[in-house]
Design a protein around this nucleic acid. Structure first.
Lengths: 196, 196, 196, 196
DNA sequence: AATGAATGAGCCTTCATTCAT
DNA sequence: GATGAATGAAGGCTCATTCAT
């Protein structure tokens, strides 16, 4: 293991992401990453220690980026309606801008079962959800009580985008995800029932 | 290859499903299926020809079952609102009753990339979508024009259920999916905006 | 095992020969022979008992045919020179008329090591050589003593034809073997040095 | 793939040759080569990539050696008669000195069908024939026209040696090939008909 | 005689990982 | 830090053969 941000490390992470996007995580071999990144086998292991750790770093890198962007979107929202719109927009925009990463982050999460159990990763994920939770708590009138867990409402907001994105990224949908940006935002607002 | 429904075949398909649910498709080895099904390696290949084909059969079997059930639910719906509710209920109920299959069918589809290209499978999938499309066409007032592709609306209806189910099946959500049956149905109706 | 000449048996032998010619003996699988012959696996084993035995029967069938033809050619020869010419002609003609068999009989013999050890086969082979040996003994003036074993002279007669045929059958020679019929006959006569 | 002549590579090639000679190419398993060479499975594949490629390298190695030796023999020949004698001697001597390789090179060529199609190998073979062809062109009086293709004459020279060698290597001939060195040389000269 | 499902040892190959240089 | 040869467990699949029907 070495310092967090050597150029070699970044090159490897990007090469790995490309491989993952093209072949899937499991089907990607160390040799593919080696070829794509230009690093030697030894170098790969010197920097990451295992194939799974490489996948974890790719995952974390993407997640951090996404959370950063989502944070910026959320920061400008005031009402709950604006918050929901911000979240949908953040997802749509990021998925469109980072299709490979999006595919990996949102749709292949389970592959990383073991790595996901790592404390560091746990922390990162927790805070990702916590962010939204806190945002909501802060904006919701203190009197309001949710009848169902927050996760259920979260599914209303992100579920449709993810569902459509999965098919779109796989080439099974023709209408560009970007075109449906407002459609999904408005639908999410209706689904959550903010108005009522 | 042999006739469609020998008892051996069924035993293998069920054993394979269990393995896939427990370890994932890629991590499941022929040897696991062999042990779980009681069949010999040769028998496995005599009946299916390849591991991928086994996965495809498991997939098709589940898909057929689900479509059958969804068809029954839809048959009893008259209005569009009832139709949406039927679809959500069909999903929730089937996922709860067939967690292993649900996980496989709804969340690991992409693994089967190559097999998915097979004409037979293509046909099955097509008709699955066609069913819903026709249902809608039949019930929608002929005057109504959808502003967006049907797929986009479909994502509003099934996206949240799938999103929540994925996490729930993975043990990351505590509230049972079944408890959210009506919640997701009502939300879907609001999202689609039937009333308006 | 059954009687020597059921039609099924013959069909299998011919199908097997085709497979052997096309893929080689080792690369030919029981399943190929099964498909090519239209017989079932069980039938194959009922008639022959093993893959090797099938190969042996194919071999023997061809060998018998060849020996029959060679016998006819030899029967009409009177002098040693005519005998040599007869042998060369017999080889060339038979190879041209039965390319698949020729390839199998003359160039893949060693594959059958184990089967070749069988007493029955030994007998057949022995008598094949014995035939020629006796022919020569009968025609050679009793006073003549060969300086080298008969096998060495046999190589002079058949070696060139076999060498050329092997390449020709494999598509590596353009001039048809048939065109070289006399060329090889005359050369064999010169090589043996009959005249001197 | 690595550099052409690591000691590991050579060890593997020699071990493989022994295995091929003893069991035949097809019957030789990677495990046999592994055991005989002392290399690990992974190392075998690191260096050669496939079993077939190992066979090809063994083949090429032997062919190069033989051509080198034949070249030396030919270099000292002046007349056509001496040339024919040189070729026969080169074959006899090399076969006697390298029985395993000889068996492989001269009698199992066809097994390598696929590999034989490789451009590199094609080149090697071409030049092997070209060598002899050029030697003949250079020594033959410019006025002489061959009635038949060179390949046909080549069969007269090498055919008998190969025919006898095949049986001798298989243990079916008792007189040592070496004892027939001059016999085959003189016969080849007579067969070609140089004198006349 | 015929059928074809079942068997299981064995094969080639892959691939994450280690380690000497 | 970098390199790439070496490792060996494991995987998917083949195929000759058996056997119940």
């Amino acid at each position: 293991m070495t310092t967090r941000s050597s150029p070699r490390r970044q090159a490897i992470i990007h090469a790995a992401l490309d491989c993952f996007a093209q072949h899937g995580v499991e089907a990607t071999t160390i040799d593919m990453i080696r070829t794509a990144s230009g690093a030697s086998t030894g170098s790969l292991y010197h920097h990451f220690g295992s194939k799974e750790r490489i996948a974890a770093e790719v995952y974390l890198d993407g997640l951090r980026q996404f959370r950063l962007q989502q944070g910026e979107y959320l920061a400008q929202a005031q009402t709950l309606e604006e918050g929901i719109r911000a979240i949908v927009h953040a997802h749509v925009d990021w998925i469109v801008e980072n299709p490979a990463w999006a595919d990996f982050i949102f749709h292949r999460r389970m592959v990383l079962a073991e790595v996901a159990a790592e404390p560091v990763l746990q922390g990162e994920l927790q805070s990702s959800f916590a962010e939204i939770a806190e945002w909501m708590k802060a904006r919701t009138q203190s009197g309001v009580r949710l009848r169902w867990p927050l996760d259920a409402y979260a599914a209303l907001v992100t579920g449709p985008v993810h569902e459509y994105a999965r098919h779109w990224l796989a080439g099974r949908r023709k209408t560009p995800l970007a075109d449906l940006r407002e459609f999904f935002a408005e639908a999410a607002i209706r689904a959550v029932g903010v108005a009522g």
